[in-house]
């Protein structure tokens, strides 16, 4: 049956804010979002929290729980100690709107900067043929639910606001990788622009993004590192370098 739990919730807006402590009931099987909703319904009707599906599929309820970027709907209450005070704060890398809700528009701006999928011009509807094994590489990255926890945890921007301008972040590195590995995409130079325009080089592969990904996408191993390796290959391989000067192409597919 229900037990009392202690929550320490950050409340405020972009000007100021502070922690508020509440005691609230938690029932068997509940997740942090359930408990926050109970606080909302019984004690703080205007507590701001963003959520949607409550099933780990939409990536809306991203916040920091005991300092870790998590989905509140997928964080079970029974993972905490009985008498533990659970601290809930908004995502640190993005500006606060109110309470647990942050302004994540940075990510939507970055999405606009990644060139779209570019299919072959002569391919008619239903004519595409691709092997399962070839689509699976990109499919892994298309599992992304855009919770932006990887963006939040990435220390390139977490504590360095000034880097945001030139750094797209892990979410968009896997977007570039996904398009780069798409069997039919015709746009060349995706890896090179990742390096030159989207800040791939600033990533020093600490794998923090992979650790927080609720979809368990191997962001670092399967997207970032392979792209970095290819970029290095191209840049320092003299034959490729010469080829690229002659043909003005990336030289690898």
């Amino acid at each position: 049956m229900g037990r009392q739990v202690k929550l320490r919730i950050w409340r405020g807006n972009k000007e100021n804010g502070d922690f508020q402590n509440v005691n609230v009931e938690a029932n068997e099987g509940e997740v942090v979002l359930d408990v926050i909703h109970r606080v909302q319904a019984t004690q703080m009707p205007d507590l701001a929290v963003r959520w949607n599906c409550k099933a780990g599929k939409c990536g809306s309820c991203s916040m920091e729980i005991n300092g870790k970027p998590r989905l509140a709907c997928m964080t079970r209450m029974n993972t905490f100690e009985e008498d533990e005070t659970i601290t809930v704060t908004p995502l640190r890398a993005f500006p606060v709107i109110r309470d647990l809700v942050t302004d994540v528009s940075f990510n939507y701006k970055k999405a606009l900067e990644i060139p779209a999928y570019s299919p072959p011009a002569n391919l008619g509807p239903g004519e595409a043929r691709m092997e399962q094994i070839d689509v699976e590489r990109s499919q892994e990255f298309r599992k992304c639910i855009e919770c932006f926890l990887c963006q939040d945890t990435c220390h390139v921007i977490r504590d360095h606001e000034e880097n945001k301008k030139s750094f797209a972040g892990p979410r968009f590195f896997i977007r570039i990788a996904e398009l780069d590995m798409h069997p039919l995409d015709t746009l060349r130079n995706r890896k090179r622009t990742a390096q030159e325009e989207h800040g791939l080089g600033m990533c020093n592969i600490t794998k923090c993004c992979t650790e927080v990904c609720p979809e368990h996408i191997r962001i670092t191993d399967n997207a970032i590192i392979p792209m970095k390796e290819r970029v290095v290959d191209q840049k320092y391989d003299p034959i490729r370098w010469l080829g690229s000067k002659i043909s003005k192409r990336e030289g690898i597919s």
Binding site: Y117, P119, L123, G126, A128, R129, E131, Q132, D185
Partner: peptide, 16 residues
Amino acid sequence: WELEMWGALFDRTKEG
């Protein structure tokens, strides 16, 4: 098919 032209990656049959 239109979705596929816009970049969707559906699971495939053996014939692709």
